[in-house]
Each structure stands twice: as structure tokens, then as C-alpha cells.
Amino acid sequence: MTPTNTALVADGSYAWMRLAITLAISVLSSAGMWTVVLMPTFEADFHLTRTEASYYTVVMLSFLIGGNVFGKSG
């Protein structure tokens, strides 16, 4: 009997495609909740306009992505 490597089967291209589709669905379904439920509360708590709150969100997401990318490459 020959041993099989299940790690290679589990991480195939089909699995990565399913992960990408699931992630896209999750992001698209959560975006509506962010703009309708959380953003007005965020604006009211910090006395921000919609533009300032959106700018703050983009900056924080950029720090998140940049920190992970440059943290792993350095």
C-alpha cells in the first residue's frame, strides 16, 4: 500500500477557487452592513462627515494590508 499525501489534494486549484468565491461573497454581503449600520454610528461617535469616515477606513485598511505585506517580506 502506498501512502497518499492529502495535503496536496486539499490545497489544489479547486480548493483555492472555492476559497476565493467564498471570500468574495463574504466581502460583498458585509459591505452593505458596513455602510448602513456601522458607518453612521462611526460618524456620530467621532463627529465626522461621510468623507472623513471613508478616508479613515481606507487609511486603516491600507495599514492592515501594508503591515502584513511588508512584515512578511522583511
Rank of each mutant, 00 (worst) to 15 (best):
M1V: 05
T2N: 04
P3V: 00
T4P: 00
T4C: 03
T4Q: 03
A7E: 01
A7R: 05
A7S: 07
L8M: 02
L8T: 02
V9A: 11
A10H: 15
D11K: 11
D11Y: 13
S13V: 09
S13R: 06
A15E: 07
A15L: 03
A15R: 04
A15I: 03
A15T: 05
W16H: 08
M17H: 10
R18P: 10
R18W: 14
L19T: 15
L19A: 12
I21K: 09
T22Q: 14
S26R: 14
S26I: 10
V27Y: 10
V27Q: 11
L28E: 05
S29Y: 10
S29R: 10
S30P: 02
S30F: 12
S30L: 14
A31C: 12
G32Y: 05
M33E: 15
V36C: 08
V37C: 05
V37T: 06
L38N: 12
L38Q: 12
P40R: 04
P40M: 09
T41M: 15
F42G: 09
F42S: 10
F42M: 14
F42A: 14
A44D: 04
A44C: 03
A44K: 05
A44V: 02
D45F: 10
D45A: 10
F46A: 02
F46D: 01
H47F: 11
L48Q: 00
L48M: 00
T49Q: 08
T49M: 07
R50L: 03
R50K: 10
T51W: 08
A53Y: 00
A53T: 00
S54P: 00
Y55D: 15
Y56A: 02
Y56H: 04
T57G: 00
T57Y: 01
T57W: 00
V58Q: 01
V58T: 01
L61H: 05
S62I: 04
S62T: 10
L64P: 06
G66M: 01
G66P: 00
G67L: 08
G67H: 07
N68K: 09
V69H: 01
F70M: 08
G71V: 05
S73I: 13
S73N: 07
G74Q: 02
G74T: 02
